[in-house]
């Protein structure tokens, strides 16, 4: 019970900070939109081709927007020495991780919705027919991505050049998630029978569960002085 309250408190705090400053979400969305927009001029895909490129493009945009958001989520804690405060609080470090992770997941979900909407407009592509399976696969892949992103952002916050350190640490570990995300959403958008790509969703779900639990257990060491 106590742990749940801490998680809720951290989550609420991050949302409130975001509501007052609107820094993280704005930068994630704008950056993601720029990636999608530039991609259009780089490749000018049309028709069939955009179906082939769209899942990969969306995941590149998600990945970079995510790195931006995760970096912010711990950079702001560092600037005001709030991380030290958290370290001193007599609470389970894992609960802090889960709270931050859920807040990041929330921001990612909004930013992803914005990017998907923009992509569907600019590429004249309708996500509606495949929305259910596309959302399901994207949810699990995003969960896995956020799970590793949050703990690596906390680690990278302790380094010089943390903006570079985060992707260097996170991207190699997140590779299975990228591949699963691209494969599953390609299958969903093509309208394949869900059985064909369900294994990718399972992989993403397994990855998410394992990395959430592992990070929950390891976060104590990240905060430790």
């Amino acid at each position: 019970m106590h742990t749940l309250r801490i998680i809720a408190a951290i989550f609420e705090k991050d949302l409130r900070v975001e509501w007052r400053h609107r820094e993280t979400l704005a930068s994630m969305c704008v950056f993601g939109l720029l990636v999608i927009f530039l991609f259009n001029f780089a490749f000018e895909p049309a028709g069939e081709e955009s179906l082939r490129l769209l899942p990969g493009l969306l995941w590149i945009a998600f990945a970079f927007a995510g790195v931006l958001g995760f970096n912010r989520s711990f950079a702001s804690e560092r600037e005001n020495a709030a991380l030290e405060g958290m370290r001193l609080a007599p609470v389970d470090a894992g609960a802090i991780y889960i709270g931050k992770m859920l807040a990041n997941l929330f921001f990612m979900a909004i930013a992803e919705a914005v990017m998907v909407f923009a992509a569907s407009l600019w590429y004249n592509f309708s996500f509606i027919p495949a929305l259910g399976w596309f959302t399901l696969s994207t949810f699990f892949c995003t969960l896995g991505y956020v799970a590793v992103g949050t703990i690596f952002a906390a680690i990278a916050a302790n380094t010089r050049m943390r903006e570079v350190m985060l992707p260097v640490l996170q991207f190699p570990v997140a590779i299975p998630i990228f591949i699963a995300g691209v494969e599953a959403s390609t299958g969903a958008l093509k309208g394949d029978p869900p059985g064909d790509y369900a294994s990718w969703i399972k992989l993403a779900a397994g990855f998410s569960v394992i990395f959430v639990v592992l990070s929950y257990l390891l976060f104590e060491f990240v905060l430790e002085e």
Partner: peptide
């Protein structure tokens, strides 16, 4: 400590 966490995740 941080490196130990990274290698475990890795």
């Amino acid at each position: 400590l941080l490196a130990a966490v990274v290698s475990t995740l890795g």
